[in-house]
């Protein structure tokens, strides 16, 4: 028989806290996020999206209370550092192959609705 350490594992129910208050996002928040992410969210689904995102934010809320004083953020699991590439030209022109994938291209250019600076 295996003797296991005291059971204190994650319990799904733990996160189903009844109050969301702090992490609730509303329609305005979703509109702002959707604008930043350039994603159209239709009016009909916006409340549903707000609710599900509030749920996710509720889930991650507990991170805030963890004491991470003096802990370095982890960027690469092995704390590896960047290798640098020698400066040489290794690519050849593949415009034709790439632009065959483009929704709209002409005269070697990708076309988009007028760009206004």
């Amino acid at each position: 028989m295996i003797t296991l350490a005291p059971r204190q594992g994650p319990v799904p129910g733990d996160w189903a806290s009844p109050t969301h208050a702090e992490t609730d996002v509303d329609r305005t928040d979703i509109e702002k996020l959707a604008e930043l992410a350039r994603i159209e969210i239709t009016g009909a689904t916006i409340d549903q999206v707000a609710d599900s995102i509030s749920d996710v934010l509720q889930l991650v809320e507990q991170l805030k209370s963890v004491d991470t004083e003096g802990v370095e953020p982890l960027a690469h699991p092995l704390d590896a550092v960047q290798r640098l590439r020698a400066d040489s030209v290794t690519e050849t022109d593949q415009r034709e192959a790439f632009q065959a994938l483009a929704p709209a291209a002409e005269a070697g250019l990708f076309l988009v609705p007028k760009v206004i600076e």
Binding site: L4, Q8, G9, P10, G13
Partner: peptide, 9 residues
């Protein structure tokens, strides 16, 4: 064998 992997869920 991590005890945390045999919790309530």
């Amino acid at each position: 064998v991590p005890g945390e992997y045999f919790g309530e869920g």
